[in-house]
Design a protein around this nucleic acid. Structure first.
Lengths: 238, 238
DNA sequence: CGCTGTCAAGAGCACTGCTCTCGTTTGTTG
DNA sequence: CAACAAACGAGAGCAGTGCTCTTGACAGCG
């Protein structure tokens, strides 16, 4: 898997270079006009190539979008990991809130990229294998915070949950070897989907005429909601 | 605004008829292949017209999509209103859960329509005035449930919230003339975005490898999460 | 009856994704 | 070193898109 030792031949060198140029141009178009407007021909024009030449590097438009998806997940993942790592390990609320705010800030700064990864996928689009690792970086962080909180011995929600519900989250529980109480895990998942639900609503305009449309208000609203979510996780405020 | 008394002349009659035929065909394409694949030319072919003829009835593709958006909001709104109305008025949890499950059921049955209204909007797309009324039907139902609950005198969350947060929800509070405590309103909004966040995650595949992918499991998971949300609203379970 | 506005059809423009062919260049192999 | 195969860029081409414009037919009005 690891890159052997950089491209050796001139051809491999050129191929790697042009491939990244294609990706850069595609990303620029995505940022500027969104995924729907991304055109392989426009990318080709950017690089001074003819459209068919691009197909030597990218099998089709979908593949290019997939690369951009991986790209976006990684960009978000890196930002969140960095922000979360800067908080004291035993400040669980702080780590959670830093995660939330970083996701939101990233989303506001990269709306088209956010829409690409958390918006409606194209009908038949099936996420290829290479997207799932980058896609799980944020969930992994959230899970880690919760697992750390639980390991710290702090009081966390651990009520019984109906067997069918417990069974439904078997897949995710297997990732943490069932170390977390079902109740806590379920609340963590609610936090996760609540986080992205809140951001999507804000970004897609559903808060229009609902929450004052100013940077200050929107941030205060989001912060409050995420604090509420945190308290539901057993993360005492402050 | 109201239709005077049905089209009178043969021309007006034909115009109304063809317009609905266009919408029907467009809806069929949307259901089958999603919004991205909706083509004005394909609609024209369906009706045995040439593409330019369609432009006599619909100014452009965006306008057609807007009609479908209104359509979808109305379809969802009708389904939810009907389901919610069938629950005893004093069963607030039941009304809330019926609303949640109906939204989810509708979304699973109409994935492309759901994606059209709750997915990522096209970049420059600004929701026209005619979409906002249909779009608010579900929020109105949710707000009504909460307002009824509050009016019943049941104990509801009414803690103080920071002034900036309270100020941020001034727009929505003005709809209910500030009758609801900020705390309750905020939790209601969290429920609202949590509801659609959960459904979007499920529909867009983010629960893959997280929640067992079976009708039973997914429903049990969703039901549990919405019950948790309800309890956060002061809606005692059962 | 005749004028005006509406309509369907067709051609056309600029754009898209993608395929195929054809010389040219590059790297490897005999 | 020569020969062959693979990789590559350019160009033409196909089928499709949204949208505009012109042209001729028709309906409804004064």
């Amino acid at each position: 898997m690891a890159i052997p030792d950089a491209p050796r031949t001139a051809r491999e060198r050129a191929r790697a270079e042009i491939t990244t140029e294609i990706l850069d141009s595609a990303r620029a178009h995505l940022v500027a006009d969104g995924a729907a407007a991304l055109s392989l021909r426009a990318v080709a024009r950017d690089l001074g190539m003819v459209s068919s030449a691009v197909y030597r590097y990218v099998p089709n438009r979908d593949a290019l979008l997939t690369m951009l998806i991986v790209d976006a997940y990684d960009s978000l993942g890196t930002a969140v990991e960095k922000a979360e790592a800067s908080i004291a390990r035993d400040d669980y609320v702080g780590r959670f809130l830093a995660t939330c705010h970083t996701v939101r800030t990233w989303a506001l700064a990269h709306p088209h990229e956010y829409a690409l990864i958390y918006g409606s996928p194209v009908p038949g689009y099936a996420a290829p294998q290479d997207t799932i690792a980058p896609a799980s970086r944020v969930p992994v962080i959230l899970t880690t915070i919760i697992a750390d909180l639980y390991a710290s011995g702090a009081p966390v929600p651990a009520a019984d949950v109906p067997p069918t519900v417990a069974a439904s989250i078997a897949p995710i529980q297997s990732f943490v070897d069932g170390r977390l109480p079902d109740d806590l895990m379920l609340r963590g998942m609610a936090a996760w989907s609540g986080l992205f639900g809140a951001i999507s609503f804000e970004l897609y305009g559903h808060l229009h005429n609902v929450v004052t449309d100013s940077v200050r208000s929107r941030k205060a609203y989001f912060d409050h909601q995420m604090r509420q979510v945190a308290s539901g996780l057993g993360l005492a405020a402050r």
